[in-house]
Design a protein around this nucleic acid. Sequence first.
DNA 1: TCAGCCTAGGTGAGTGCTTACTCACCCGAT
DNA 2: ATCGGGTGAGTAAGCACTCACCTAGGCTGA
Lengths: 233, 233
Amino acid sequence: MTSLRMTSDLRRQLILGAAKRCFARHGYNGTTTKSVAAAAAISEALLFKHFPSKAALYAEILSEECEADPELAVLLEREPSTATLVELIRGMVQYFVEIADGPDQEEAQRLRLMVTSHLDDGEFARLLYAKVEKLIGTVFVASLERAVAAGDAAPPRSEPLNLFWFAHHTVLTAALTRLPATPCLAYGKADDLERQLCEFLLRGIGLNDAAIASHLGRASTPEAKETAIAESA
Amino acid sequence: MTSLRMTSDLRRQLILGAAKRCFARHGYNGTTTKSVAAAAAISEALLFKHFPSKAALYAEILSEECEADPELAVLLEREPSTATLVELIRGMVQYFVEIADGPDQEEAQRLRLMVTSHLDDGEFARLLYAKVEKLIGTVFVASLERAVAAGDAAPPRSEPLNLFWFAHHTVLTAALTRLPATPCLAYGKADDLERQLCEFLLRGIGLNDAAIASHLGRASTPEAKETAIAESA
DNA sequence: TCAGCCTAGGTGAGTGCTTACTCACCCGAT
DNA sequence: ATCGGGTGAGTAAGCACTCACCTAGGCTGA
């Protein structure tokens, strides 16, 4: 094994990256420290110089994975409105639908960790749900209120935040079905799965068809998105 | 280890039951043949007299788990209608919501197997999805058509079957969040989570609020269900 | 009737292999 | 010369799986 010398911090990051890939693909029990060391192109001994145990390595990955997406922050800044609500759902759908065919599989790993947490004690999932709720929940609820006030949506008879979670649930499983090499569901070979999901979710949330059509019809390109944002202000 | 003598078939079933519990709770890699033997109150050697390998035991559980629910068959017999559609969704929601606090945890095990399959090669999930589609899909699509014809639902702009899967996705994750000992989401401490889910899903499918209110408002007891069925005929 | 044995349910004590983890040691740069 | 990055060769425990053996009972045949 001939590997270059490097700083401790960089090595740590390389190990974490390799371990993340391994744990996400094979789960905690299905991953061996030997395979992680091989993926990081180092010896097993060096791995244990950086992390005291396999469990500690796993725990560090989980806590690191809790950090928020920077691109999400953009949505937070937006004025609450029907357009923001639609954009929020569309962004969520897009994110989850594209998880499977992401190039680096990083988002797929996050999904795998999230799901395995549900099968375990659920602690990681609770942490992540809480973070998402703090980040997106408020924008969602405020935007829904505005949409109701503007006559774009029916007043919700449910806890508004739950509507967000229901939508989240839908796209999470949709992404899950596309995780294996051969997808679990074909969705009628739909090429516009994204649009179908958006319509379903927005209807479920309570938006009327006119609002959905007007806000969802356009804005498929970033430029168009900007236009929609400008119009909504 | 003092265990009674018994027939080979009965012993097989006891082992399968114990193994199902183990695999569902800890996954394939997390389950040891020793723990399965202990759960079945027999020696490990006897286990291997009945099943040639751990993998074969797991495979048999998966194929056995593919069998359909008998109670589902009732819904198949019903005349397609808006009421049937609502009942279908309500039944599905009820089934998934009650998974977590089922007494024997048998349904929770099925959910766990289903989800772990998605993280693996997805083969078991594909089988089960295909079976569900054959059983419920036709009734769902036919009922949705009737609902549209009756003016209860907007004509779907999506593949109708996908609407069913979207609804299925939602409740699947909802059940998943309630699988750990402490639920991953509180849903605003909702006691009427079932109703909120039904409304969200039926709206998403395209039913108008009047139809939802009239079909969902009543029929919370079996007797009322019968009434609704009779009225829908 | 009953010794004798034969079979099928059942097990304790392993087998070889893999796992997480350790330790004595190496080497290049300061 | 020393110190931190790096390793080969372990170790003890745990894994899936096996084998020689045990024992209760049913069925012979004399």
